[in-house]
């Protein structure tokens, strides 16, 4: 039996929204410790890794590890019916052929319940090594969203370079070149406005802007985004969910042929 109650159901809705443009069908893996997702887009260019600790939930019971195979467009349709302040309850039997979702609102006294058929999804799992990255940058997630959105008018590819000067995003296309440089900035009283750059050696990598824009769908989950880069490796773009979990994206770089 799996049963989980999340007072702030909106967190789960935002997680679904942060993934649904990249993948259609996903397995949500339930264990005694957490709910987690690992999935790739159909082109195997990007990977999403989500974790939400059992401590995020008001009630969490998982007798046996199980995978809930979900079709995200359908899940998203159901979450459209969830109110902003609703509590979410998930329930599944060990056989896991259907998922019960409940949205409860104490103020209005409403309880909405849905039964969703689950699917058996064959997903390719990747072993992602725990790497020490050469550059780690923390910045406001809204700034990152604005930069990758704005640069799309210049071209399809974004060069991200981390040097002593700062973190530079560049795009080149038919109309010319655009560069946006972020310098380290810890002047603000609010820590979430800080830009911190931890660089062991300079790194420069190229990425598809289309994917970077997909990842910014996670912006509502976190005021801060963490970018990690090493030469010749996929970038990691992490949105921490308070102290309770994260949505991490890995994106393969574009390389010289």
């Amino acid at each position: 039996m799996f049963e989980a109650r999340l007072a702030n159901g909106n967190i789960f809705k935002m997680i679904v929204e942060s993934i649904r443009e990249l993948v259609v069908d996903v397995n949500i893996d339930c264990s005694t410790e957490e709910l987690s997702i690992q999935c790739m887009d159909s082109a195997h260019v990007a990977l999403v890794s989500m974790s939400l600790s059992q401590s995020a939930f008001d009630h969490f019971r998982c007798d046996r590890s199980l995978s809930l195979g979900l079709n995200l467009p359908n899940v998203s349709k159901i979450f459209k019916m969830m109110g902003r302040d609703d509590t979410m309850v998930l329930k599944a039997e060990d056989s896991a052929d259907k998922l019960m979702l409940m949205f409860e609102n104490d103020k209005s006294g409403t309880i909405a319940d849905f039964e969703l058929k689950l699917m058996a999804i064959e997903a390719e799992q990747l072993g992602v090594p725990d790497t020490a990255y050469k550059c780690s940058i923390s910045m406001p997630s809204s700034e990152f969203q604005r930069i990758v959105r704005d640069l799309q008018v210049m071209g399809d590819t974004c060069k991200i370079s981390c040097t002593k000067e700062g973190l530079k995003f560049s795009a080149t296309g038919q109309i010319g070149t655009g560069n946006i440089l972020m310098r380290q900035n810890v002047a603000s009283e609010k820590e979430e406005d800080h830009v911190t750059i931890d660089m062991e050696e300079p790194v420069e990598l190229n990425f598809a802007l289309r994917y970077l824009n997909f990842f910014t769908k996670a912006t509502p989950l976190s005021p801060t985004v963490i970018l990690k880069m090493s030469p010749g490796l996929p970038i990691v773009i992490e949105y921490p969910i308070e102290q309770l979990g994260h949505v991490k994206y890995y994106l393969a770089p574009k390389m010289e042929e």
């Binding site: 195997h44 260019v45 990977l47 799992q125 010289e256 042929e257």
Partner: peptide, 14 residues
């Protein structure tokens, strides 16, 4: 020209 890599060149399949 730049070529888009896939994650299989970097990570192992489980």
């Amino acid at each position: 020209p730049l070529k888009q890599g896939t994650l299989f060149s970097f990570f192992n399949k489980h």
